[in-house]
Structures are given as C-alpha cells and as structure tokens.
Design a protein around this nucleic acid. Sequence first.
DNA 1: TCCCCGTCAAATGGATCCAATTCAGTGGTA
DNA 2: TACCACTGAATTGGATCCATTTGACGGGGA
Lengths: 240, 240
Amino acid sequence: MTARGNQALVDRLAATIQARVLSGQIASGSRLRQETLAAEFGVSRTPVREALRKLQSGGLVHVEPNRGAVVHGPSAREIREAYEVRAELEGLAAELAPTRISDEQLERLREAENLFRRSMGSLIRRRRNGKTSDWTAESDWEQANNVFHQVIQEAAGNARLLAIIETLHLSFPRALSWAALSESSHLLEENIEQHHRILEAIERRDPQEARRLMVEHVRSAGELVTLHLEQAGARQAVET
Amino acid sequence: MTARGNQALVDRLAATIQARVLSGQIASGSRLRQETLAAEFGVSRTPVREALRKLQSGGLVHVEPNRGAVVHGPSAREIREAYEVRAELEGLAAELAPTRISDEQLERLREAENLFRRSMGSLIRRRRNGKTSDWTAESDWEQANNVFHQVIQEAAGNARLLAIIETLHLSFPRALSWAALSESSHLLEENIEQHHRILEAIERRDPQEARRLMVEHVRSAGELVTLHLEQAGARQAVET
DNA sequence: TCCCCGTCAAATGGATCCAATTCAGTGGTA
DNA sequence: TACCACTGAATTGGATCCATTTGACGGGGA
C-alpha cells in the first residue's frame, strides 16, 4: 500500500494514535506494540514505527531502545509546568489579538460564549435531576473552549505561536479541564465569567487587559487541573 | 547493525543531520536523499527515514509525499514570529530565574559575561587589522550567548519551558545572530550591555526587571536578525 | 525455601526487496 | 515551432526478512 489522498499514511497513523491516547481510549502507561497497531490498521510495522517516532518528538510517547513505545503519563509537575508556559503563550496571543481580530472572528467568539452558557444551563438542569455526569454539557463546554482559544490564537496571526500552543495542548490527555471544572457549578460559572471578561477586553481593544485576564485565566485553570489530579492520585493511592 | 551505546541509532542520526543543517553544512532548500544519507552513515535507509520523520516534527525539514525531505528555509516572517514567541518565553525564564538560581549558576553567568567581553576585545582588535571575519570572536560570543541563556533557562526550573525554547532555537540555522551583530562593533557592544543588565537584575533578585530586560533583549536581537536577513535577501535578489 | 543461571518465546531494530509515484527527456503531432 | 503524451530512470513508500535484545519461565544448587 502507498500514500493515498494528499497526506501521507504515516501522518494519518500518527494522528489516529494520538487521538486515541488523548481521548483516553488508550491509557497512560500502556505499551504500544508495533505488531498490534499494524494489524489494527491493516498495514505493516514500517509506517507504524515511523508514526511512533513522530509522536516521540511530540513527547506523547516515550520510546526506549529495544523496549518499544509507552504512552507517557505526565506527572502533576509536568502538567503544572506546561500550564505555566501555556499561560504565557496564550497571554501573548490575547495581547496580539485585539489589534488584528476580524469581525468574523469576533462573531465566532460570541457564538462560543453562547455555547458556554448553554453548557452551564444544561449542567445545572442535570444536577438538579441528580445525574452526576453530563455528556451534553461536557461536549458543549469543550467545543466552546476549543473555539474560544483557537480563534484568539488565530487572530494573533502568529503561526508559530499557534503551533506551539497546539503542541502543548496535545501533549497530555484531554478532558482534564472538564473533569476538574465540573466538580462544582461555581467553578464552571467562574470559568465562563473569565472567558466573558476576556472577550470584553478584546472588544474594547485593550491588549494589556486582555493579556492580563488570559494569563490569570489559564493559570487558574492549571491550578484547578493539577489540584484535581493530585486529589485523584491520592484517592487512587488509598484504594490500592 | 543494532543499537550500540545507550541511545538509539535513530536519535544519533537525527541529531547529526540536524547539526549539519544548523551549522550551514547543508543549505536551506537542499533535498535530503535517503540513499545518500544512508550511504554517508553506513546504514540502511530504514533508520534514516525514521530520523527524517523526527526532524519533520521539529519543523526543520519538510517531507512531501513521494517527494522526499527538503531542508525548510524559514521566511523572514517565520523568523520574526519565532522571535516574538521566544522573547515571551525567555522573558518568563528570566522572571522565574532570580528566585531559584543557585550560586553555582550565577557563577557560570559571570563567566559567560567574561567570555562576552573577550569576544568583544578580539573583534575590535581584528577589525583594526582590517580583517572582516573573526572565528575566535564568533565562537566566543556564541558560546557565551549559549551559556548565558541556557543557564537562565535551567535556573527557571521548568523543563517544558527549556524544551520549547530549545526547539525554537533549533528550528532554523544558527549563526544568524552573529552575522547580524558583527556588522558593527556598536551593535555588539549594545548586545553585551543588555546581557550585563539582565545579569544585574538577576543578582538583585528583581524578577519583573529581569523579565522586562530579557524581553527587550530578545526582541531587539530578533529585529536585528530579520533586518539583516531581509537586506541579505534583497542583495541576493539584485545579484540574480 | 530462596536465589541464580540458562534457555526460549516475544518484540524491537535494521536490511533488503518490491511496488508506486514523480519527473525529466523524447518523440510525435497539430 | 510549440505542445502534448509516452516512456524510463530515479526516488520514495511499504512489506517482508533476519538479527539482536529483553524478560519470563523453569531447573538446579546452596
């Protein structure tokens, strides 16, 4: 088999494996056996190996000589470090965005805000009915969050910045944010309010304020996530 | 042949190819033929291909399907974008460093400063003698610069931050800074003075000032480099 | 009973082989 | 003469084959 479509097979393999890891379909710490993946995708080991190399560079998997690839489960410290960097970079994006953002992009931000409010509403409604998890709210919030941050990064007009933030975002499993946020509706409300204030600052064309708010926003999200993670780790340790 | 030493063959290949590209030994825009590289290193194409995949992730080479790998020659815009991001990240490192830096690391910074002054001296001396290029000054300055920035990044104590800055640093050919700086001894003097003021701020344990100075320093270096590059490009365009 | 060593299956790493694609050069035709 | 289609070498992509390493299992000895 040879390259079909315009992008290489290897890249699609890498993307698929990455997606599975990030979605939690493949757990942290799992060994990724080349033979298994190859059979899974109906290809030989050769492209699988190259795909794993690519992912290695991204830090998503660790490849030890003669031992193969394992999914890298990031420590709380690593996540904290990543958020520290992310806060800075998203802050830069928020600072650059107000002077360059288009009306169409602003409109998308406002749509994201509506989606935020919808996820909030459905979370509260479900909570009242005693349900603990809520897929609708989760996917709404996650989509809104993705759109919100991505649009700002696009508006910043710096491709390199975009790429690095993307790498950071893809280097450890998703859904951590939501897991932490949905603990209480107060946290979610706070989070949505932060997004709202950032949007306001951008509409006001106030780079410094947009930056300040964004840095604060990402930092607080990072603290929530690491806290949640450490608690989960502690809980797991007790159970074991 | 199989993995000798503790790190994989693929990683050594990738590092070697990367080094050759960065040092200018392999020009931007060159095609990297797998067969040639394989023969060069006395291995088969398989590990070479994996190494190229790794480099692809770093953005150093572009791999087009069925067309092979070419060394990515960054545009002035890309370099400008990279410096914009780098300024932010090195600023963060400079902000974090003062509170965590060790005496030993401070000592290394002071040594770097001496090396800076030495490169300055030897540049001026050579200039008087009418020589246009100066390998001693170049390597001194480059080493001092590497040490200076690396120590600060280490002192920041954030491995992720370090890794990202490293990636930025390795994604386009070196020696650009020196090429731009050595145009005039005034520029070099200014540059060394900036380093000096950053060190002072760190010794004073003044995070905000260290950050401000570092951001300014990297930005001005970036402007120099892009300016130099655009001039060189224009000159080349005229000659062609 | 516990520890050490040898053997063997399983998995990775590298080399080689074959297929598919690209691109340059050529020849034919309008 | 200009343009298009065809052909063939060069090169990449994927599959297969073989060597090496790892780690587990089991037997023997202290």
